[in-house]
Structure formats: structure tokens, C-alpha cells
Amino acid sequence: MQEKGQDDHSFLKHAIENMMPANKIFGLEIMEIKPRYVSIKVPFKKEFIGDYLQKRWHGGILAAIADTAGGAAGATTLDSLQDRINTLDMRIDYLHPTVEEDILAKAKIVKSGKATAVVDVELFQSEQKDPVALARCIYSIHRNSS
């Protein structure tokens, strides 16, 4: 699974979209997956509203999307199905209000080592040039020693 071409990530794409119950609830779709990078789309659902007066996405849902995108980008560097990746820390800055539209997350690895990965995630809506939120995620990586 380590840093191979697009076709080599088909199982990872399938697992993230279909084998993780939260991602199925989100309706998450991987738009692009390549070594050290993932972009995902989450369609807007009324259940994701956190501010019912202004019809804004719930910040916790946005954070979950960022964490999922970051973890998926980190997973592109794993060597085998026995390797594991887990969130250690995450910071998110909410920059612009969201509207009743889909979210696109773009996650890129900033640094990856034997035991950790640092991933930056940008969340966008529509054709906006500026992200609605930015996240920095740090993951622990547990590699199978065999």
C-alpha cells in the first residue's frame, strides 16, 4: 500500500467509503486518492446543521470530515493491511461560515515518518477559492514489524 499509483489505492478507497459506518452516514465519497493526498466530498444533509437559524454546518461534523480526510491521506503511506493509523492531535480553524452545500476536503501530508504523519486539510464549499476551514492533523502510525 505504500506510495503506489492510483490503482493500488482501490481497496483503501473501498474501505473508507463502504466499511466505516460513520463515513456511510456522511455519504462520504473519495474524489481523488494518490500517494500522500486525498480529496473527499460529503454531500450536505439537513441533519448536519448545527446553527438552525442560519443553516450552518455543525463544527463537529466539519472536524470529523477533516479528520477522516487526513487519516485517509496518511493511510496512503501504509505498507500493509496490518499497519494502523490513529489520530493523536487535531486543530481546526473555522474561517468562513458554511451554507447548505456540499463540503470538499483536500488533505495533503506535510511530513511522514516511521511513527507519525502530519497532514494539512482544507475544507471548501462550491467554487470558493478560500477554504471555509483549515485543519492540522497528527496521526500515530503503527507499522507491522513482520
Score class of each variant (00 low, 15 high):
43 P>V: 07
43 P>E: 09
44 F>D: 08
44 F>E: 09
45 K>H: 15
46 K>C: 00
47 E>F: 06
47 E>W: 08
47 E>D: 15
48 F>G: 03
48 F>L: 06
49 I>G: 02
50 G>V: 01
51 D>V: 12
51 D>E: 13
51 D>G: 05
52 Y>D: 13
53 L>R: 11
53 L>F: 11
53 L>S: 11
53 L>Q: 12
54 Q>M: 15
54 Q>R: 15
56 R>V: 14
56 R>Q: 14
57 W>S: 02
57 W>I: 03
57 W>A: 00
60 G>V: 08
60 G>K: 12
61 I>M: 15
61 I>E: 09
61 I>F: 08
62 L>I: 13
63 A>W: 07
63 A>K: 00
63 A>M: 15
64 A>T: 15
64 A>W: 04
64 A>R: 01
64 A>Y: 01
64 A>P: 03
65 I>K: 02
65 I>P: 01
66 A>N: 07
66 A>Q: 01
67 D>G: 07
67 D>P: 09
67 D>Y: 11
67 D>Q: 13
69 A>K: 03
69 A>V: 02
70 G>M: 07
71 G>W: 04
71 G>M: 01
72 A>S: 15
72 A>I: 00
72 A>P: 05
73 A>E: 12
73 A>M: 09
73 A>Y: 02
74 G>E: 14
75 A>W: 04
77 T>S: 15
78 L>Q: 09
78 L>V: 12
79 D>Y: 09
79 D>P: 00
79 D>W: 05
80 S>N: 06
81 L>A: 13
82 Q>R: 13
83 D>E: 07
83 D>I: 09
84 R>M: 10
85 I>W: 02
86 N>R: 08
86 N>Y: 04
86 N>M: 11
86 N>T: 15
87 T>V: 09
87 T>K: 05
88 L>S: 09
88 L>H: 00
90 M>I: 15
90 M>Y: 01
91 R>P: 01
92 I>G: 03
92 I>Y: 02
92 I>E: 09
92 I>R: 05
93 D>H: 10
93 D>N: 14
93 D>K: 12
94 Y>C: 01
94 Y>A: 02
95 L>N: 06
95 L>C: 11
95 L>F: 06
95 L>G: 11
97 P>H: 09
97 P>I: 08
97 P>R: 06
99 V>I: 14
100 E>C: 06
100 E>N: 03
100 E>I: 02
100 E>K: 10
103 I>Q: 10
103 I>W: 10
103 I>T: 11
104 L>M: 11
104 L>Y: 13
